[in-house]
Structure formats: C-alpha cells, structure tokens
Simulated scan of single mutants.
Amino acid sequence: MTYLFDVIRQYMVSLKRYHALRGMIRDQSLTTYFQPVISLQEGSPLGYEVLNRPPASSLFPNTEAFYDFIGHTDQVFAFERASRDLSFNRFCAALTRSDKPRDTVIFINIHPQVLLDTNYRSGETLQLLSRYGLSPKQVVFELTEKQAVHDYVEFERILYHYRAQGFRVAIDDAGSGYNSLKAIVSLKPEFIKLDKSLIRNVHQCPNQQRIVKLLQEFAAESGTHIIAEGIEAREEFVFLQQEGIEYGQGYAIGRPATELQTASLPVCEKTSM
C-alpha cells in the first residue's frame, strides 16, 4: 500500500508540474535575464547569454529541476519555440532601451532535438529574427552536455545548414563529461564554454588547470574561442586572464539582469602597507 500511495503521489505531482508548464508556455510567465560575456584580456563586450527562468514555485524548487522536467515531457518543442520567441522579443526590447550596439551578440540555450525538428529548420527562426530586426550573425546556439547528441553525422549536416545562414554554435558545460568532449571534436563549434566546475577555485587546483590548458590548446589549433563560465572570485579571473583565456562570464564580471548591464573586469584589491 505504501508503494502504491507513493506512485499515486508522484503521478499527481508530475501532473501538476505538467499543467504548470503548459500555463507558463501559454502565458509567457518566464522571467528573462541577460548575463554579459566579455573579453578577459581587454574588458570589451562579446555579448549576452539569454536566461529564461520559471517563477518561484514549490513544484520546481530550482531552475535545473524545471528544465530537467521539460526534457521528460512532450512539451520540449512547444517550450523551446515559445522560449526562443520570448528571448528574441525581450532582448530586442532591452537593446532598444540600452546604449548597446544594434549588432550585439546573444547566446541562446537550445535543445539539440529542436534543431533536428523539420519545422524548426523551415525558416521559422529567420522569420522571428526578421520580425525583431535581428541578424543570424548575432545568434549563437548553445548546446549543453546535459542534452546529448546521438547522431553526430546528421547533426553536423544540420549545423552546416545553420552556419550557412550565419548562425554560430557553442558547446556548453565543456569538461563536465564525455558527451561535451565528443561534441567538441565532432561538431567543431565556434565557441567552447568551460563548465563552472572547472572554473571554481581553478587557481588552486592543478588537475582543473591541466584540463583547462588542454581545452585551450585544442581551441587554438581548431580556431575555436574559449569562454570560461561561472567566474565568481577575483583569483579565478586573474588566473584565467594570465593563462590567456579569451572570454568569460560569471558573477565576478556581471550578474544576470533583466536589462543589458555593462560588465567590467574585476578590480584587483590593493594590499595595505
């Protein structure tokens, strides 16, 4: 009886989550944040990652749980379509309110299976960009380790289609697992985003430093740009800058915000005499 009760309870919670998700898609009740990505060497801006977050709820204790749940439903395509529209719409509005260049780059998180969808490839994204006055050259698709690619030959063919239109690709969470490393080699992305687990206390961890160095060498040989994610401490920033890592993002540079904030390099603390 206890097992049966637990199964029923889990089913009811899942049903409530499903209806909540459908409501968010319908009402566009996500909050959109923009986190700056900058040059670690010069401090100049590269662009912004767009982050759509669900409202605070007991059904979804955190953002990761929310997106994990979506991946197990039949709403992946519907959510991605709505989220993409929302991202472009709100980015365009924020860009209009800011003093940033009109061709500012945006990083959009996207599920690999969505790119495989024939409806998605039919020009829907180009129509959206045209509606908001944006260009494919401004858009970088972020593919994450958590959403593995299975058919790399087919996926590489599809990415060629997007690249021909001007879009670029970033592999997110690099160094966090086998899938991201395989994706880097197979898909030849324009950007490699180092996972925050590699960056946390990297100045103190020789093993993490070796992995960062290996990825940096691979990127240099393949013409790929490195972006270090999750930079939260000045010491992490200093180490990455000294190692010649090209780009970075994180709380030490700029927190996610609903407007396009101007980021800056962390200020080095002065030692007292």
Rank of each mutant, 00 (worst) to 15 (best):
L134V: 05
R234H: 00
A220P: 04
I231P: 06
S197T: 09
N201P: 11
V140H: 08
F239A: 01
G123Q: 07
V238G: 07
L215P: 08
K182R: 15
A183Q: 07
E124P: 13
L198S: 09
A233R: 03
G223R: 10
R210D: 05
G230F: 03
Q241A: 00
K188L: 11
F237I: 00
K193H: 04
F218S: 08
Q147T: 01
Y162T: 01
G133L: 08
K213Q: 11
N201F: 12
G230T: 08
G175E: 14
R157S: 13
K196H: 10
R157E: 15
G244W: 15
R157L: 14
F239H: 00
E243H: 10
E235V: 00
F239K: 04
Q241G: 03
I199M: 01
L159K: 06
Q147C: 09
E124R: 15
I231E: 08
T224H: 08
G175C: 14
T224L: 03
S186R: 13
S135F: 08
N201H: 14
F167L: 05
G166K: 05
F141P: 01
L194T: 00
L129A: 11
R210F: 08
V202S: 05
Y162R: 07
Q138D: 00
F155L: 13
L181V: 12
A233D: 05
F218T: 09
E217N: 01
R210K: 07
Q127M: 10
D172E: 03
L194R: 05
E145P: 04
E190S: 13
T144H: 03
E156P: 02
R210P: 01
E236G: 00
G223M: 11
S135D: 12
K146P: 02
Y160N: 07
H161Y: 05
I211P: 01
Q147K: 09
E142C: 02
H203Q: 12
V149K: 13
A233K: 03
Q127C: 09
K196C: 08
L129Q: 13
E142Y: 09
S197K: 04
I158P: 15
Y152D: 08
R168Y: 00
R200L: 15
D172T: 00
D173R: 14
S222T: 12
G123T: 12
Q165C: 05
F191R: 11
E124D: 15
S186N: 13
V185M: 02
E154P: 11
K196M: 10
A164V: 10
F237R: 03
F239Y: 06
V212D: 06
I199G: 02
